[in-house]
C-alpha cells in the first residue's frame, strides 16, 4: 500500500451560493502538487458535479480526495434520501431537481453521466432513505 495525500471537506447543504468550494479548492491543491492540467480538469469537474448533487439532493455531505502514485480517488458520502433507481439516475436527462434549482441552471440530468465520463471508474452505493456513497477513480 502506497501512502496517499489526503484532503477532506465538509460540504454544507444549506449554502447553495458557496457550493462547489471543495472542488475549486481541490483544483488549487492538485495544481500545487504538479498534477497534469487534463487530470485536474477531470477530477475537479467530476467532484463538482458530485458536490452540487450532495447540496441539491442530499442536504450536504462529505468529500474525501486521496492522491496515490498511480491514481486519484474521490469519495463523496451523504446521509440524504438515497437514490431509488441508480440505473435511471445515471441516464442523461433524468433529474428530480425542483424548479428553483432548475432556474439556476442545474437539473439537466447530466451530472452523474459527466462524473462517469470524466473518471476511469465510478461506483455508486446508495440505500434508499439512508444515504449515498459515490467513489470515483481517475488514473494518473
Amino acid at each position: 500500500m502506497d501512502e496517499a495525500v489526503k484532503f477532506h471537506f465538509v460540504v454544507d447543504g444549506n449554502d447553495f451560493t458557496s457550493a462547489g468550494q471543495a472542488s475549486v479548492q481541490i483544483k488549487k491543491n492538485l495544481r500545487q502538487l504538479g498534477i497534469a492540467p487534463e487530470i485536474i480538469r477531470k477530477v475537479s469537474i467530476a467532484m463538482y458535479e458530485g458536490e452540487i448533487n450532495m447540496v441539491i439532493h442530499a442536504g450536504g455531505g462529505e468529500a474525501d480526495v486521496l492522491i496515490y502514485e498511480n491514481r486519484i480517488e474521490i469519495i463523496l458520502t451523504d446521509n440524504g434520501p438515497g437514490i431509488a433507481n441508480i440505473d435511471l439516475a445515471m441516464q442523461e436527462g433524468f433529474s428530480t431537481a425542483p424548479d428553483n434549482i432548475r432556474s439556476l441552471g442545474f437539473g439537466a440530468g447530466m451530472g452523474l453521466p459527466n462524473m462517469k465520463r470524466y473518471t476511469d471508474a465510478m461506483q455508486i452505493d446508495s440505500t434508499f432513505g439512508k444515504g449515498t456513497r459515490i467513489s470515483m477513480t481517475v488514473n494518473l
Partner: peptide, 15 residues
C-alpha cells in the same frame, strides 16, 4: 444568459 454565482465556479473548473 445564466447569471447566478455558480457560473463562476463552472468557468473556473472548465477553464
Amino acid at each position: 444568459i445564466m447569471s447566478n454565482v455558480n457560473i463562476v465556479a463552472v468557468a473556473t473548473l472548465v477553464d
